[in-house]
Computed example of a mutant assay.
Amino acid sequence: MRKQILNKLSFTLALVGLSLSIMAQSTIIKQDLSIYPKPEKGYKQLVIEVPHSKNDINKRIEFTVGKWMEVDGCNSHGLQGTLEKKDLQGWGYNYYIFKTKGDVFSTQMACPGTPNRHMFVSGQREFVNYNGQLPIVIYVPEGYDVQFRIYKAEEDIYQASEVRQKK
């Protein structure tokens, strides 16, 4: 019995170690970010780096800035703010600055008896071209984070149908 508990504990610790190792690897920055401006006071610099592939042209990145919050259990919530696209002078690259006062909007449905939930409340989504050779640099206020998705086009290409008009 004691040996089983020790084996389970060893296995759990190994999984935790592996998870921490994977998380640490996801924060490795492969691009030189020294050409980008330093974050202003109260802001932090976040970077999205995606692996280069021969199919970069068939992919897009969707990212959004937000904050983890405790909200009611039935309404949709969103973060008010603006995402400004800036040009990195002399380099031809872009970066983004998200500004917000922290105001949150939501639908106004009554949800009696519905427990609260912990969710990522985000602002407007931004779609950018996938480029595995350049980072996406975003400046956000302290306490906010960025989440992103990679969209990939299907290999199939379809043809639109012509609508014949009656004469």
Rank of each mutant, 00 (worst) to 15 (best):
M69V: 06
M69A: 03
M69E: 10
M69Y: 00
E70M: 10
V71G: 01
V71I: 10
V71N: 04
D72I: 08
D72T: 07
G73P: 02
G73A: 07
C74P: 00
C74R: 02
N75F: 03
N75A: 09
S76C: 01
S76H: 10
S76G: 02
H77G: 02
G78L: 03
G78A: 08
L79G: 03
L79K: 12
Q80G: 00
G81Q: 05
G81Y: 01
T82Y: 00
T82Q: 14
T82H: 01
L83V: 12
L83D: 08
L83R: 02
L83N: 09
L83W: 00
L83C: 08
L83K: 02
E84R: 06
E84N: 07
E84I: 07
K85E: 11
K86Q: 08
K86S: 06
K86Y: 01
D87M: 12
D87S: 12
D87H: 04
L88V: 04
G90P: 02
G90L: 10
G90D: 06
G90A: 08
G92A: 13
G92R: 04
G92T: 09
G92P: 03
Y93F: 14
N94E: 12
Y95Q: 08
Y95M: 11
Y95V: 11
Y96E: 09
Y96H: 04
F98P: 00
F98W: 01
K99M: 05
K99N: 15
T100K: 03
T100I: 02
T100N: 05
T100S: 13
K101S: 14
K101D: 15
K101W: 05
K101R: 10
D103K: 13
V104C: 05
F105M: 14
F105Y: 13
Q108R: 13
Q108F: 04
M109K: 12
M109A: 15
A110T: 11
C111P: 01
P112M: 13
G113K: 15
G113W: 06
T114C: 04
P115K: 12
P115Q: 13
N116H: 06
N116T: 13
R117N: 03
H118F: 13
M119A: 11
F120I: 08
S122L: 07
G123A: 13
Q124H: 07
Q124S: 13
R125M: 05
E126S: 13
E126A: 06
F127H: 09
F127I: 15
F127N: 12
F127L: 15
V128A: 06
V128Y: 00
N129W: 10
N129S: 14
Y130A: 12
N131F: 04
G132H: 08
G132N: 09
G132C: 12
G132Q: 13
L134S: 09
P135M: 12
I136F: 07
I136T: 15
I138Y: 01
I138H: 04
I138Q: 01
Y139K: 06
Y139S: 03
Y139C: 10
Y139I: 09
V140N: 03
V140W: 01
V140G: 04
V140Q: 04
P141S: 04
P141W: 04
E142W: 03
G143I: 05
G143W: 07
G143Y: 02
Y144V: 08
Y144A: 08
D145C: 00
D145T: 09
D145K: 06
